[in-house]
Design a protein around this nucleic acid. Sequence first.
DNA 1: GTCTATACGCAGATAGAC
DNA 2: GTCTATCTGCGTATAGAC
Lengths: 201, 201
Amino acid sequence: MGLKDSTTEEKILEAAKNVFMKYGLYGARMQDIANIAGINKALLHYYFRSKEKLFDSVFEKALEKYFDQMTVIGDKSLPIKDRLNVYVDNLFDFFREYPQMSMFIIKEISINPQMFHEKVAKLKYQKSMLIPTLQEAMEKGEIHSFDPEIFMINLHSLCAYPFLASPLYKAILQKNGYNWDEDAQNRIKESVKEFISFKFQ
Amino acid sequence: MGLKDSTTEEKILEAAKNVFMKYGLYGARMQDIANIAGINKALLHYYFRSKEKLFDSVFEKALEKYFDQMTVIGDKSLPIKDRLNVYVDNLFDFFREYPQMSMFIIKEISINPQMFHEKVAKLKYQKSMLIPTLQEAMEKGEIHSFDPEIFMINLHSLCAYPFLASPLYKAILQKNGYNWDEDAQNRIKESVKEFISFKFQ
DNA sequence: GTCTATACGCAGATAGAC
DNA sequence: GTCTATCTGCGTATAGAC
């Protein structure tokens, strides 16, 4: 991971990301983060003051990336189907780095919706125009008509869940002679694109 | 929920299920569980000895239900496509009661695979024959050929994720004039069955 | 900036009365 | 079986030397 050439702050953020992704906010231990970062526990507080603030830093950085890769949806120079395929590519790249991100967002909203909306508001946040974009294309008769909310839910399910469940699939796939590697992820990605084609046919 | 007519043990298990489902093992507080069950904290320990053991009781009960609803896959009196549709019905019923169950299984496997396999071994566990069943049907030419592992992952994604993300969808759907109610869940279920039809066409 | 040693509080667990 | 009061330990957070 090239941790050796990073600054202490970067090392901490990288270690914290991995520990939080594996154990969640409450399950994560500051001691583990310090060990993995190769520094002392007290230094975590020197840099980030508290566990919550450290989590927030990881979370906000991820949230920013998450919204960044979403902007392609609004790019009107491409046909809607192409935009969706690029969006899926982006989502897969994102989840490779932050496999548990959806759960963090979900928990955050579930436990403290106010806080979450404040964090989102801080970003140069461009609202995902997926649903209105689909509706518009349907009205123009460019695509076959279907329920855009359900489609959005299906699409997110297909992209997010395999990464959430990766510890499980690592085990299952290995028993069947496969690995949870980039190749497996790409085969899943192709199946998602196949699903998009099916809905757009 | 009819908590009033239940025994103390049932009240505890019901409360514990909800709190664990919302906050996870580490995020859950024994005090919260006691409050919701309408009893004292000490009584939790009287009945279940420790937090971990209480969690295990909830978890094992759920695991049993989870495997129960899976047996239909092996029921050779039905065509494979019908079996899958019943399986999806069962899965949706299960996730309505235990929306976060997949994450518990996943975390358990991720953190302590040994323990998980022991728990499964205790059940009158019938291995999901989904993949071999599909392979057999393909070899016989009953269904069109596709990758059964990827299909299984897609199917689980489509069923499990909407419940994991339900706090999120509650918020999103409400903004668009819908609710996260049984009707919404049924529309998602229909879309999953549509996906099955698509793969089996 | 980084460390060791230590304080502090919270949540799980226990003792013991009723 | 159920309660109140109390203990204990762990994990976050701080003080202070270097």
